[in-house]
Simulated assay, not measured.
Amino acid sequence: MEDGEKSTELSDGKYSTASPDINDLCSCINTKISYIKKSLQLRKIDQEPSLKTVLGKIAHEMFLLTNILNKLELEFHHQERQQSQLKELQESIERDYQEAQHLGENMPIHLPRAIPNSTVSLTVEQCKDVEAARGKKPAKDPKSIKEASFITAEEFENVPAYMRGRLSYNQVNAVIQEINKAVVSKYKIMRQSSKAMSSAIRNLYFRFQEEETKDTKGEFFIVEADIEEFTQLKADKRFHSILTILRHCKRVREIRGSCLVRYAVC
């Protein structure tokens, strides 16, 4: 044999010499012939009774698979939309954070001080009333807001020991001061013009009106919500213990009704 040739066994058992390119061509043709034979066999599969059941199952599984693929496609688009929305939300939060950080780093030195909840703005007419009331005694001024007087040391000593407990004279008078603060803040709001009220003050005003009853007419009273709104006190066990002392010393009295306890200034 010459170089570049090799022996190839033919179908009849004989050998012949051929180049590698011819062998590859023959292999490719044989493969295509095999595919054609298989295609011809599959064309007749539905004509064989033994294979009809298998073919039906395959068709059913293909149908189920198609439905699953459709659902996966819908879920993919849904997740894609959610991802886009989350990305927009993230960008919005980052912008807000950067703006807040910028404001924090560039805060003006001359900003006005925040007005605490207990401070209530007065109208011009009420300011005139306050100025006029300075030269008058509170008892003679019909527009004055009644406040509880402080407990004297002698009164405190006469309070039963079980009421006082570990409370001190200064602690009791400190609560009286906060109660007066809440009373004054409340009734300043009650005397404001509705046009001068902010939304938050107007909501308080409506609550104050709802808490009024025939028994509270002419009284100056507050409720626990006012204590927490206008002062730093908490309506806890200690606070109620001090209220017991104040009732005993006739600084406040309770007016009950509509499932609400009102503390009126005596």
Rank of each mutant, 00 (worst) to 15 (best):
K14V: 01
C28Q: 12
R256D: 02
L51F: 08
K136H: 09
E212D: 15
Q47L: 13
K186E: 00
R253D: 00
R166N: 13
P49Q: 08
T213N: 04
K140I: 14
H248K: 10
A174S: 10
R81T: 12
A235G: 07
K37D: 08
K44Y: 03
V124E: 15
C249K: 07
A225L: 04
N117I: 01
K14Q: 14
P49I: 07
V130G: 04
P142G: 07
D236N: 15
R251D: 01
S92N: 11
N70P: 00
A114N: 04
S118W: 13
L74V: 10
R247A: 00
Y15M: 14
L51Y: 07
K250A: 07
D21Q: 12
K32I: 08
A200P: 02
R207Q: 13
G56D: 15
Y15P: 05
I222H: 01
V175R: 00
I201W: 04
P116Y: 03
K14P: 01
Q209R: 15
S185G: 10
Q83H: 12
T17V: 13
I29V: 10
P116V: 07
Q209L: 11
L55I: 03
M197W: 05
E228G: 06
R247E: 13
I36G: 04
F220H: 11
E80K: 13
F221D: 07
T152V: 01
V252Y: 05
S34M: 02
P108Y: 02
L89I: 07
V124I: 10
E48P: 06
L42W: 02
P49H: 04
S11E: 14
R113T: 09
A153C: 04
G4E: 09
R134Y: 12
T216L: 05
E224D: 08
V252C: 02
